[in-house]
Write a protein that binds this DNA or RNA. Structure first.
Lengths: 364, 364
DNA sequence: CTGAAAGCGCTTACAG
DNA sequence: CTGAAAGCGCTTACAG
């Protein structure tokens, strides 16, 4: 057969079907069972044999078919991460933190977002993770007890991150006290008209962290002798544009706030832009507090609540892997600390007298 | 056997192993072959039979094991999206656009990022997509010809997005002319000291779009009678923090620029924050142009180059699916249009006389 | 330490 | 229109 017009780089003809375990076995002069053991570093393989197998596998550029091995093992060797979206800093960072841990032990991480076709309803209807992952990390998105129960009932081991539920073990931060400390910082600076940007009631994701943060927000206001006003609680999504929209809304009020507490740093950044474009000086006329401690927060001097996303993600990954081997008899609920980081985006209310001002790094 | 302490909601006992095609076949009183056909809407199934199979599958909550079916079909039913990171607006948006198209025809989309353990080197070494996807969409990240060639040589059908290469079909925008038009807008406003924020030389990702945009940037400067200065070209990553850092750097120069062209809107936002914190008024003292037309760009009045991410992603998805069935004999290279959107972040250079100012929506 | 063989849960010619 | 059977590429008792 004359060579076709395709490229041939001397190593392998393009289009050649890739090697199977059988090919490796033949080349190494052993059985496929031995190849399987050698390549996975299982015991009971003679060193010399292992060498030959590794060499053959290398020469053939062999990589095991994950579908075949998954089917045989009865494990997918994949974990799922359920998030509202991937585009926000928080979830993207979470994804890589979790992935870096699970990849080390041979697992891949598959994202399931609610931004796709059909959104959350479709997700709950299809439960698209079934038979695709060995365990599931559910981050924030679904809070109605029914939703989480439906997911849990699918029978896949799971851990929730950001929301505590009776249906699964969880890993959370104390959103109530984190928000209380952020807003307390503002009331301490004399602010009373404080808006909260970030979904509460109408949030399609029932983002429970937002509910808790709203409680902390309300607590802090009441502790300062003020009642929270519904008009100052603006639901919005957690990205830059969510913050921009929400800020535009509160600025259009007859009495705009003197300070805002945003549910994410990205929201805070978007909000800050809009506020400045509308002629507000930060922090002289408007104080802004964010949430997360995004990489950019330090650069722009944003006061914020720091949560250790990477630490949370890594911890979640380890616990998830733990669920695989051992399971849990009682659901464990872990709470991780946060702390307020005070920077330049907050200051005393204009014309008002500051009362107490917590220093930077105040633990919450 | 007495019931264990586990929950039992009347539908299915927790921990029960999930149904297989065999279970469905038994319950419907047909063979597994018939179940397979009925469930996939293949021809040659009697309507009544199909009904019974669907009912049985529904009652058993059956879902086919993708590993088993993938193995049998010789297709993974998955596509891969290779991106530098998922956290940026652009790539996240791209992911959902592509996903929404491929999900409709039963494909899942798997992300491969360079942010994980080992980064780009590991990716090129392992080629982790092998035997995991049927085709690959490579967005921007790898530009050295060797890198892309190595990926292409893995034998997986692929399409590149954002960079044209000899090794695969591609889908790009005209970055040179897009940048030329953005920077031309600035020179038209009288600016001559114009910085470019966004990787060129040292970029670990060899982000070729940045190289092209730099060419357009240099072209526009030269057309205005000015030479591009190395000190005003600052490599940086495309996120908020990349923009913030790069801006901090150019502002620390002895002669800061009067305008900046940022390689992404997120960079532009981060940069704008830093500039304002440093006391620069936008656009009176500093004009800023972004790239992408991020959702938030309109909110903050950012002048930018609009590229239709969703349209690009959907088009790429369709072409990728096309590669699966038909293949391509010659690599096709498509170029999609962009256009400059002028908003409030750009204005005449301070003390300088504007010469020509293109209107909003000027096609590039 | 090694191999033959069964089995994972599907799909797909092939025969009827 | 339907079913029996081979086969996809692995892993894992089991026997030696």
């Amino acid at each position: 057969v004359p060579p076709g017009p395709g490229r041939c780089n001397g190593v392998e003809v393009i289009g050649a079907v890739s090697a199977t375990i059988e090919d490796v076995a033949v080349r190494a002069g052993v059985s496929v069972a031995t190849v399987s053991r050698a390549l996975r570093s299982l015991p009971n393989v003679a060193p010399a044999t292992r060498e030959r197998v590794l060499a053959a596998a290398y020469e053939l550029d062999y990589v095991a078919d994950p579908y075949a091995s998954g089917l045989a093992k009865g494990r997918t060797m994949a974990l799922g991460l359920v998030v509202p979206m991937l585009g926000s800093w928080y979830y993207a960072k979470l994804f890589s933190a979790v992935e870096s841990v699970v990849a080390d032990v041979g697992y891949e991480l598959r994202p399931f977002t609610m931004t796709g076709p059909g959104g959350i309803e479709r997700f709950l209807l299809d439960l698209p993770f079934r038979k695709r992952v060995d365990a599931l990390l559910v981050a924030d998105p679904l809070e109605g007890p029914e939703e989480l129960e439906r997911i849990a009932d699918a029978g896949v081991p799971m851990l929730t991150l950001g929301a505590r539920t009776p249906f699964a073990p969880s890993l959370t931060i104390d959103n109530v006290s984190a928000a209380r400390s952020a807003v307390g910082h503002l009331t301490g600076l004399g602010h009373r008209r404080i808006a909260m940007l970030g979904g509460t009631q109408d949030d399609p994701f029932h983002f429970s962290a937002a509910v808790d943060r709203h409680r902390g927000y309300a607590d802090a206001l009441r502790a300062a002798g003020t009642a929270p006003l519904p008009s100052l609680s603006v639901p919005a999504d957690l990205g830059l544009d969510g913050g921009a929209e929400a800020m535009a809304r509160v600025l259009s009020l007859r009495h705009p706030p003197t300070a805002v507490f945003a549910c994410s740093d990205e929201m805070a950044i978007g909000a800050m832009q809009v506020a400045r474009d509308a002629g507000f000086e930060v922090p002289r006329q408007l104080s802004i507090v964010g949430f997360d401690d995004h990489d950019v927060a330090a650069h722009v001097g944003l006061t914020t609540v720091r949560q250790d996303v990477v630490g949370l993600g890594e911890r979640a990954a380890h616990r998830l892997l733990g669920l695989l081997d051992a399971g849990e008899r009682a659901h464990q609920h872990e709470i991780h600390p946060t702390r307020l980081v005070v920077r330049r985006s907050t200051g005393p209310v204009a014309g008002g007298a500051a009362r107490t001002e917590p220093g930077p790094g105040e633990p919450t």
